[in-house]
Amino acid sequence: MTEDRWRDVDDYIAGQLLGPDPVLDATLAANQAGGLPAIDVAPVQGKFLHLLARMAGAKRILEVGTLGGYSTIWLARALPEDGRLTTLEVDAHHADVARANIATAGLADKVEVIVGPALDSLKGLIGPFDFVFIDADKQNNAAYVRAAIDLSRPGTTIVVDNVVREGGLLDADSRDERIVGTRRLFETVAAEPRLSATAIQTVGVKKWDGFLIAVVD
């Protein structure tokens, strides 16, 4: 199996089950025009997050790492009429692009974008949230999960992206801070009695990676 084959399968799934989405296409185009890195979740992953949030019956969603708002839009679309999403972004320019994309998607009334270091922003939030998606700097993933637990209730779903890193997760001697942070994340979750968790490897347009998925007990 090659990466081209992985991409072809993702494209097939998206074509069969997602269909065209001009709003999300425009979001990615705006991100590119704004000079944002192309590190958004894949379309099939966005729909996966959307469905997880719906399955959780989420009315309050927390996202750590907004970028240009692509995953934010997927998640906000899962909310009921009175639902709210809070998303945290460290880069002011990224936040501006995201706000514009979110407004274009017709979701500005449901989404609050907070600018600043996420660990600082998290201290000012009031829970509980029903669903948490973490996709920011990997060095702080363990700290983000600990903060997410404090802002959760029994039954809250926590999802962390990019936890396999093309197998780099296995490298105990790595000096890559993202891998070091990801291994620390697994150690933290494994030792946390309030969480039931697993992780799923993924392949596709985002190459070889995966999600950690946990529920607060």
Rank of each mutant, 00 (worst) to 15 (best):
N162A: 07
V216H: 01
D161E: 12
Q201T: 14
A105G: 07
L49R: 05
G181T: 05
T156A: 10
L119S: 07
V164T: 07
S71Y: 00
L52M: 15
V215R: 13
A105R: 03
G210E: 00
E63C: 03
D82I: 07
I200V: 15
L36S: 02
G68Q: 04
D8H: 13
I61G: 03
E187T: 13
G124E: 12
V64R: 01
R60L: 11
M1N: 10
I134N: 05
I134A: 06
K110A: 13
I200Y: 07
E192I: 04
L119Q: 09
K47S: 12
F186P: 00
T86Y: 09
G168E: 07
D11S: 12
L52N: 05
P154F: 01
N101Q: 10
W208M: 13
A42C: 05
R5K: 12
L51P: 03
D120G: 03
K123D: 12
A118H: 02
A197Q: 04
E192R: 08
E192Y: 06
R183M: 01
M1R: 12
G204L: 03
Q16R: 15
K59A: 14
T156M: 09
G106T: 07
A53Y: 08
Q201F: 01
V163N: 04
D91A: 11
F133P: 03
R84L: 11
R178H: 14
L67R: 09
R165G: 01
V163T: 14
K207T: 14
A14G: 04
